[in-house]
Design a protein around this nucleic acid. Sequence first.
DNA 1: GTGAAAGCGCTAACAA
DNA 2: TTGTTAGCGCTTTCAC
Lengths: 339, 339
Amino acid sequence: MVSPSVKDVAALARVSIGTVSNVLNRPEIVSPDTVERVTLAMEKLSYVRNEAARQLRVGHSNALGLITLSGSNPFFTELTTAAEDSAASAGYSVIAGNSNEKKDRESGYLNLFEELRVRGVLISPVGNVVPRLRRMRQRGIPAVLVDRVSNDLSFSSVSVDDVAGGALAVTHLIESGRRRIAVVGGPTEIRQVSDRLQGARQAAAAHPGVTLEVIVVNGLTVQEGRRAGEAIVERAPSARPDGIFAANDLLAIGLLQALNMQGEIAIPDEIALVGYDDILFASASVVPLTSIRQPSRLIGETAVQILLEEAEDPDLEPRQILYQPELVVRASSASAPPA
Amino acid sequence: MVSPSVKDVAALARVSIGTVSNVLNRPEIVSPDTVERVTLAMEKLSYVRNEAARQLRVGHSNALGLITLSGSNPFFTELTTAAEDSAASAGYSVIAGNSNEKKDRESGYLNLFEELRVRGVLISPVGNVVPRLRRMRQRGIPAVLVDRVSNDLSFSSVSVDDVAGGALAVTHLIESGRRRIAVVGGPTEIRQVSDRLQGARQAAAAHPGVTLEVIVVNGLTVQEGRRAGEAIVERAPSARPDGIFAANDLLAIGLLQALNMQGEIAIPDEIALVGYDDILFASASVVPLTSIRQPSRLIGETAVQILLEEAEDPDLEPRQILYQPELVVRASSASAPPA
DNA sequence: GTGAAAGCGCTAACAA
DNA sequence: TTGTTAGCGCTTTCAC
């Protein structure tokens, strides 16, 4: 009914529990035939180490905590998978949670991670978590910000240049002849959103005669995109934008559904559309979606690497890694603008 | 540098550590002003309980383990979110991993979960894990199979009737006039795949004059779907099926890309297409996808509930919950068959 | 209502 | 090379 412990293994192998522990942790210092005997005993008993006991003793766990903004956004699932792979090859596991952009879910996970004494945390923050992270770091749990730069640069971060991405998207719309640009995104407290918006503004400002309208939504979901699209459909044609930049692909897909599938507005003829993230489905949507690609796997891998280095040496200087995004042109923005 | 313990809290509040533990676990048995003093001390120190120590003492953790087949399949991400929500409202957290249909990743997670002494595991199995699960159950860790029924019914399971789903899909194709049906799916070791295939066979057999071809692929991914689609494009038109049932939506989307976007084959005019899972993107794909919907959230919630009941009372009889899938008709199968 | 103390399973320091 | 032992932080009797 209960699991065997080192004691049981020791008894069966006729050695002390210290020796059992040694074959578990430093087999090289114990004689080959003792290793053999102990290993055999472990197999016979199907011994599985009690991680809680190990952890209590050594002071921290073998897990990394990861908090992303959304579990349904493929950008984050790719990042998560990459982080898991990197961590695994260094002997760590990762406990992944997503805040769904809710501050209380976020702090719930931080609580959990601190109770678990994880080795470090990767986080794409929603709320103002820096003070909390600072306290955790003082207690030996480092953190790396993912897809977000800390204001005061006191934490390492791995992110993509969202301002450049926003500018890239809107510049592309302008260069393909659009003049009345709308940006759809929100909530603006999310740094990624406000940065992309800022880039959009810069690009618009650099081109005289271009107007930029901001449509704020409550989340980066297909549903919110659909809602925003329905509002645009209801407008008089002359009041509609001729180019839309959506702050992520899920929003863009929602917009596409509302604009195109109700048969009202042709994409890209009447309105050109650009998304963000270049998720797997971007190329498979009703109209293949022009998008901004982020190196999601690379971000996850780099973040884990930096985190583990900081866990090893807490006095390392924080580093800010900034990757550049890339424009991927598809049908949703390909054709000429309306006459 | 290190975290405060109950000892520190006790010292600050001028009580014994036993009392601190009591306000943590049974505050009702300690006097209100002591609770107050201790709570204050905890806040002052930002005390966070050491979960490993608690767990070592009580014998098991507050976490549930969950292993799904794929992290990029929205069916599983929805199921996972639902499981997390259910678990959270019962005071549990869930550690989610995905096997990517790899046996060694699967057993890696089972190892991890057993080392962690999770309260129970939810698993959508790839390999032959039943013996392993049996051993874990003997040691007090129950398991519930998700989206899969155990052969010997010794474990509870929550699943959808995949045979019925496969039949539903193919019957729909036949009733909309198709006669040369192809089923795309694999690997066939995955029970969901073989069940859907079996349902497809039954439906075909029930309709004289209908032929059924099985195209086996190596995984349920967009990429594999694209590969299968390319092979179909290369065939002589008369050798192509006029209806395809894909074992999941990711495959169907890949097929869609290969068939439709190369401009070769019209969907649904030349080939009608039915997917499985009704993921969020099914309605947003190049041609909105007819699909079989599974109650993913319901599955996750029910599975957690049963698992927690079994954790409470190990002698409960295993239960098999079988939900029925539902056909959702969209454009990819809507029009008339070829003349 | 509160305190004292045992012990969960493990690792690591030290002794033999 | 192997054995002995202290102690990680917590919960839970059992006295008081």
